[in-house]
């Protein structure tokens, strides 16, 4: 079913950079929690398709009950994998496809999935803090919605339809426009959440930080040099245009 141009699909899942040690740690946590299924994770309410017009999954998600990193974490060696990750391989693969639609490869600049943005999304939606839990609500619903919508339109999961078909769906939800059809209102808001997260995770990565042009975080001997000549020239032009002077 999947187009062979697809980088990721059901048969070519995204490989998380989760370490074996981290995975084993969570396995332990999950088996303990298995005795209390209501306390952990976020299982989608059902696998039943929800493909009526204006559909929205409204997943019933249980709150993440894991602990955070606490009030005194080690700041020098930052804790990794503090809470169990909740995204399944299928969900991670869908996040990878979306991430690369949002931030595709551009010449030598890698795409979002190439710098492991899906892992950051997974860490984020799995975190036990209120902001992340609010995002999780949107993001898990939009992931399910994309599959529902894809099945409705193309009779296959989102990751298994061609890039062109994927974009047909994304085009409907990627813009907050005045004539937005009511059926896309919720998907549009939810897509905005994951877009913001993907952009941040990309630009935070070493490659993304370079791409955005951040030149700091290096020690300077002597006085702070201030703006470059080029930057000053640009400012002078701006001041002229605005009728301002220093």
């Amino acid at each position: 079913m999947a187009d062979k141009k697809n980088k990721y699909s059901s048969s070519k899942p995204y490989q998380s950079s989760l370490t074996r040690r981290g995975a084993l740690k969570w396995l332990g946590a999950i088996s303990t929690a298995a005795a209390f299924p209501a306390l952990i994770g976020c299982q989608s309410s059902s696998k039943k398709l929800n493909t009526s017009k204006g559909h929205w999954p409204n997943l019933s998600l249980s709150p993440v009950s894991a602990n955070g990193y606490g009030k005194d974490p080690n700041l020098i060696i930052a804790p990794k994998n503090v809470w169990p990750r909740i995204l399944t391989t299928e969900q991670l693969t869908l996040v990878a496809v979306l991430a690369d639609i949002i931030v595709p490869r551009e010449g030598n600049v890698p795409s979002a999935s190439e710098v492991k943005v899906p892992d950051v999304v997974d860490e984020w939606v799995s975190a036990p803090y209120s902001r992340q839990q609010a995002d999780k609500e949107y993001i898990l619903n939009i992931l399910t919605w994309l599959d529902d919508e894809s099945i409705l339109r193309f009779n296959a999961l989102f990751i298994d339809v061609s890039p062109a078909k994927q974009l047909m769906i994304v085009d409907d939800i990627a813009y907050n426009k005045a004539d937005l059809s009511a059926e896309f209102a919720k998907p549009m808001l939810a897509f905005a959440r994951i877009r913001r997260l993907v952009l941040a995770a990309f630009f935070c990565s070493p490659e993304g930080t370079k791409d955005i042009g951040y030149l700091g975080n290096v020690p300077i001997a002597g006085d702070y040099p201030g703006p470059t000549d080029e930057a000053i020239q640009h400012l002078n032009q701006v001041l002229d245009n605005l009728g301002l002077s220093l």
Binding site: Y69, V120, S130
Partner: peptide, 9 residues
């Protein structure tokens, strides 16, 4: 964790 963003901790 979480791109350094703030939370209750």
């Amino acid at each position: 964790p979480l791109m350094g963003s703030g939370n209750v901790d």
